[in-house]
């Protein structure tokens, strides 16, 4: 049995990678990928706790829901980005500013 601390550590590292990527990267696709990494870091956390405390089945449901929502989110996000790329010829978020004040 792998101790739970290692899972939590892995999850924290993944989350940090995603966070740093989100804060530093300019390409919207990379940012979307970073969000996915962060989501999955959270999912790993859920699963690890579910495995350690099997009496609580709720964690699985959370994870499945999170995966579903993430899939939908990526679908919508990529669709927006594709459209933005078609009209603006860029995916750099610093240039996609026409809706900002």
């Amino acid at each position: 049995m792998i101790p739970i601390e290692l899972f939590i550590l892995l999850s924290a590292m993944l989350f940090s990678v995603g966070l740093i990527g989100m804060l530093t990267k300019k390409n919207a696709i990379v940012i979307l990928m970073c969000i996915e990494i962060m989501l999955n870091a959270a999912n790993i956390n859920f699963i690890a706790f579910a495995a350690t405390y099997p009496a609580a089945p709720l964690a699985h449901i959370f994870v499945i829901t999170a995966i579903t929502v993430a899939a939908a989110e990526v679908g919508v996000g990529i669709a927006i980005l594709l459209h933005a790329y078609k009209t603006r010829k860029t995916t750099n978020i610093d240039e996609l500013t026409s809706l900002r004040w």
Partner: peptide, 12 residues
């Protein structure tokens, strides 16, 4: 600033 990443920074 209106820059989402700045807000995210504050949050982090």
């Amino acid at each position: 600033t209106g820059n989402v990443r700045d807000y995210l920074m504050y949050m982090a």
